[in-house]
Design a protein around this nucleic acid. Structure first.
Length: 470
DNA sequence: ATGTGC
């Protein structure tokens, strides 16, 4: 791959062959080591019909299904622009929710063990069934698919203020539950309010450093404060939606005369029946993911209140796997484009009209989960807002699950973390070992590259004091 | 990520 350095933390892949736009990669050389496959995927995405500006990659870019994880690409529906399920990923609306506690680390320490035991019992996780919310019937699932966190709050699972601190007010518009297949519904019915497995987690964290006092204060964060971070997605329902619509698009692509360099880039014009069907189903799955995090947050709130008399206020909830129709200035004019963010977080700058009034001057909270033993970050958007106001979403894997599990046993890893003062409540030793900190890139280097590339700004650093894993 | 998969 011919990478031309254009600036610090910025590389360009010149358009060759069927590429319609260049690739632009925001990273350091060190982060791009072993990223050859991912960079090829960035180039492949640049061939999609209607793609505008560039096929972008965030500092945590790594290989994924069709699109690289950490990929951002926008297409113009008025110019034959397509939507591709591979540009969103299997875990539709996977994302992060952060809650701030009205207690600091010293205050929580005497009851941390009880809080962790409470969370251990209250947070359904691991593969398969078990959920906080037992649905009463099909109408309730339809409500979730249409209303997301908004529906959950209407049914008493949360407070109205929560919705001010959710991306899209808690629900993506234009969801079409009718495009969510029977199998997806069947898989999703028993999982509303469940963490899942893999890199999904619920952590009790401490604000270890504040890098911008004013913005942190606007977000409701101060040094040494306790927080709860939830990283989860749309479970089996989102996975099945992706599977089903990829299959339809693979079949329908020839009808639209679309050729892609990789089958996994199956796509359809945004303005076509399969394109609209996917976007409707995707929005429904996204709402499921948001309701899921709302329910998990409620479970955590009940534990903190009961065990420690502590209140948890929502800081923000944001997805990092989603395609959205947004307006952006491209080539000197406003255009409505379909922005795919896969393992990339939207990062609105201060003053953005879609931010709630109390965040207007600070910018959008961007939540970046790290790994168990290291740190997570709170960032905010910046005015230059490159890549359609997007930034990184996490550390990015450096080792395969298999490699990671070979490197350390789950029991040893837990002992090591506990020795570092991190309480661990895992549901599977194997799953824990697969998520060992050594299996991930250095999240701090990712954040540094994001900041250096002008994608975001650091606000606070969070360190784990307790981990609940699937 | 995922009732890891033909």
């Amino acid at each position: 791959m011919n990478l031309v350095q254009e600036g610090p933390y910025r590389y360009r892949i010149e358009p060759t062959g069927p590429m319609r736009v260049p690739g632009v990669v925001f990273a350091s050389r060190a982060l791009l080591r072993d990223a050859e496959q991912a960079l090829q995927q960035v180039a492949n995405v640049a061939t999609l019909p209607g793609v505008v500006e560039a096929s972008y990659a965030m500092p945590d870019v790594h290989w994924g299904y069709g699109f690289a994880i950490g990929g951002v690409a926008a297409t113009d529906p008025a110019d034959g622009g397509v939507v591709s399920p591979g540009g969103v990923g299997f875990d539709i609306s996977c994302g992060v929710r952060l809650l701030a506690a009205d207690i600091d680390a010293d205050g929580l320490r005497p009851v941390l063990r009880d809080v962790m035991d409470g969370l251990d019992r209250a947070v359904p996780r691991g593969m398969g069934k078990g959920a906080v919310w037992r649905l009463r019937g099909a109408e309730e699932l339809t409500g979730i698919l249409t209303g997301g966190s908004r529906f959950a709050v209407e049914r008493g699972h949360g407070v109205p203020r929560d919705l001010d601190r959710c991306e899209d007010g808690g629900a993506v518009a234009d969801a079409d539950p009718g495009q969510v297949g029977a199998r997806a519904v069947e898989r999703g019915a028993g999982q509303v309010g469940s963490l899942g497995s893999g890199n999904h987690f619920l952590e009790v964290q401490r604000v270890a450093a504040v890098h911008d006092d004013a913005v942190a204060a606007a977000f409701g964060l101060r040094r040494d404060q306790i927080c709860v971070m939830i990283h989860s997605g749309s479970r089996g329902l989102g996975h099945q939606v992706c599977t089903d619509h990829v299959r339809v698009m693979e079949r329908e692509m020839p009808r639209y005369g679309i050729r892609v360099p990789d089958r996994q880039l199956a796509c359809a014009p945004v303005e076509s029946p399969p394109g609209r069907a996917y976007l409707g189903a995707m929005a429904a799955a996204a709402n499921y993911g948001r309701a899921n995090r709302q329910l998990l947050a409620e479970a955590a709130r009940r534990v903190f209140e009961r065990v420690a008399g502590v209140r948890l206020d929502l800081v923000y909830d944001v997805s990092h796997n989603l395609a959205k129709l947004e307006e952006h200035e491209i080539g000197g004019r406003r255009r409505r484009v379909c922005v795919h963010r896969k393992g990339a977080t939207r990062a609105f700058p201060p003053g953005h009209p879609e931010l709630p009034p109390d965040l207007r001057d600070a910018g959008q909270p961007v939540l970046v989960p790290g790994t168990m033993g290291t740190a997570s970050y709170v960032l905010t958007g910046v005015p230059e807002g490159r890549a359609f106001y997007s930034t990184c979403h996490g550390a990015g894997r450096a080792q395969s699950r298999h490699q990671a599990a070979r490197g350390v046993s789950g029991r040893d890893l837990r002992a090591r973390l506990e020795a570092d003062g991190i309480a661990v409540r895992a549901s599977s030793w194997r799953g824990l070992a697969e998520e060992a900190p050594a299996a991930y890139k250095d999240v701090t280097a990712v954040i540094e590259a994001g900041e250096g590339a002008g994608l975001c700004r650091k606000v606070a650093e969070l360190r784990p004091v307790g981990v609940v894993k699937g």
